[in-house]
């Protein structure tokens, strides 16, 4: 059984014409890293906020670890969350920020101190426990926010565009750090981003969303190479869309401008003589002297 199950989740905001999220079905396995990828307004953040409990689903159920969490308040869910704007408490230093959830949870002082030390070591900021958030760089603040979310040993970690406010170089290094920490702890993670590179490089599986609907769910390789919808094909990577005539679905033969090509795999759902569309990644095109067969 999956660790996190979203079933028929639907969200309609008051006064909204169309639902923000609809027909959302997804099972996330324990320890899995899943990304929600899509343009802004596609419903990915809304879905994440419903898992966190900050929004209530209009209908559908969200089950975590076999327990329906829809009626549970956000502060009872034991879900760690990292925000785009870091959201560190400005009145507390780094150590107090990281220890906040433990303190609220009634842990003893030595226990908090030990865990905070562990967390600081994990994010490699051992020396900065006494600093205040405004004394840190953006990348450091986000690492503290990550440590704060993990410190409470949450069952699930949610990250809402955590790298969007950072500059390109930090983004890359923190991305790798997030992935390695996630692997190290084996924590089930849902990651929201509009950056396809982030989604493809980090995730075990990517959920591509558009206009409140899931377009495709799959491992990054599949999403990139075998998009099932035109939206996924055009949103992920660059490509050329060509109108083709299907010659033989069984062998994958197609015709463009009178030239016959082979797609390399059978074309399901297409009949011979039908007009179809193929998406061609520029990087895959090679020119050869004789009998180009691809």
């Amino acid at each position: 059984m999956a660790f996190l199950e979203l079933t028929n989740v639907r969200k309609v905001f008051p006064n909204a014409q169309t639902p923000a999220v609809e027909d959302f079905n997804l099972n996330v396995n324990a320890g899995e890293f899943v990304s929600f990828l899509g343009p802004s307004g596609c419903g990915k953040t809304t879905t994440l906020r419903m898992i966190a409990g900050f929004e209530t689903a209009t209908s559908g159920s969200i089950v975590m670890d076999g327990r329906d969490i829809t009626p549970i308040r956000p502060n009872q869910r034991n879900i760690g969350m990292v925000f785009q704007s870091y959201a560190l408490f400005p009145n507390m230093n780094v150590a107090d920020n990281i220890g906040f959830g433990l303190k609220v949870g009634g842990k003893s002082k030595p226990e908090i101190k030990e865990r905070v030390g562990e967390m600081l070591a994990l994010i490699k900021l051992e020396e900065l426990g006494n600093r205040y958030p405004y004394q840190l760089s953006g990348g450091q603040q986000q690492r503290v926010a990550l440590a704060r979310a993990i410190a409470i040993r949450p069952q699930l970690l949610l990250l809402d565009e955590p790298l969007s406010a950072l500059d390109a170089k930090i983004r890359l290094s923190l991305r790798n750090e997030i992935r390695s920490i996630q692997r190290q702890l084996g924590i089930t993670t849902v990651y929201v981003t509009h950056d396809q590179e982030e989604a493809l490089s980090l995730s075990d599986r990517v959920v591509v969303m558009n206009r409140g609907l899931i377009e495709q769910v799959g491992p990054p390789f599949e999403i990139y190479n075998f998009p099932t919808t035109e939206f996924v094909a055009s949103f992920v990577g660059t490509l050329n869309l060509l109108k083709v005539k299907v010659i033989d679905p069984a062998t994958g033969a197609i015709q463009v401008d009178g030239q016959t090509f082979f797609t390399g795999r059978p074309l399901v759902n297409h009949a011979a003589g039908e007009t179809a569309q193929i998406a061609l990644r520029p990087g895959i095109v090679q020119s050869r002297q004789h009998g180009a067969r691809r």
């Binding site: 900050f54 502060n75 009145n91």
Partner: peptide
């Protein structure tokens, strides 16, 4: 301050309304 995000961050860490007001909002 970003009241909403700070509130949500505190909530996700298990804080109730009293704690949020007393430990986060009022000090800031």
């Amino acid at each position: 301050m970003d009241v909403r995000v700070l509130t949500e961050a505190a909530q996700s860490l298990g804080a109730g309304w009293g704690t949020i007001l007393w430990r986060i909002i009022i000090p800031n």
